[in-house]
């Protein structure tokens, strides 16, 4: 469920990035790399889990599924927070800079 949640986040971010490309004012690419990286790593983890559990891997207990989904959402939220910090620090649109400095008349 964590893998699935991250893959959905990665796909949505990639579509948003593609719509805005080649401009990257919102730095959505950061989110794409983060979510795809995590998705690939969880895929590797899932392969090992599947090798251990076989078909049972696809029938998790509802409580485990809910906890994994909760974790997935938390991971997505953490990714969004990291992206927001990078966006505000890099400030590609100069919004933060404009808020800090006022033009002298």
């Amino acid at each position: 469920m964590t893998l699935l949640t991250t893959v959905f986040a990665a796909v949505i971010c990639t579509v948003i990035w593609y719509r805005g490309a080649p401009k990257s004012e919102m730095k959505v690419g950061v989110l794409c790399w983060m979510y795809w990286g995590a998705s690939l790593m969880w895929l590797a983890d899932a392969i090992f889990e599947y090798a251990k559990l076989h078909a049972e891997y696809f029938t998790p207990a509802p409580a485990d599924m809910l906890n994994d989904f909760y974790l997935g959402l938390s991971v997505v939220a953490l990714g969004l927070v990291i992206w927001l910090i990078i966006l505000l620090v890099k400030d590609p649109k100069g919004v933060v800079k404009a808020a800090l400095f006022r033009r002298k008349n």
């Binding site: 964590t2 991250t6 950061v30 790399w33 983060m34 979510y35 795809w36 990286g37 995590a38 998705s39 690939l40 790593m41 969880w42 974790l71 938390s74 991971v75 953490l78 990714g79 990291i82």
Partner: peptide
């Protein structure tokens, strides 16, 4: 780099 760092950070959180 971005794939590895991004994935590692989110997995560390897990």
């Amino acid at each position: 780099n971005k794939l590895l760092w991004g994935g590692s950070v989110l997995l560390a959180f897990e």
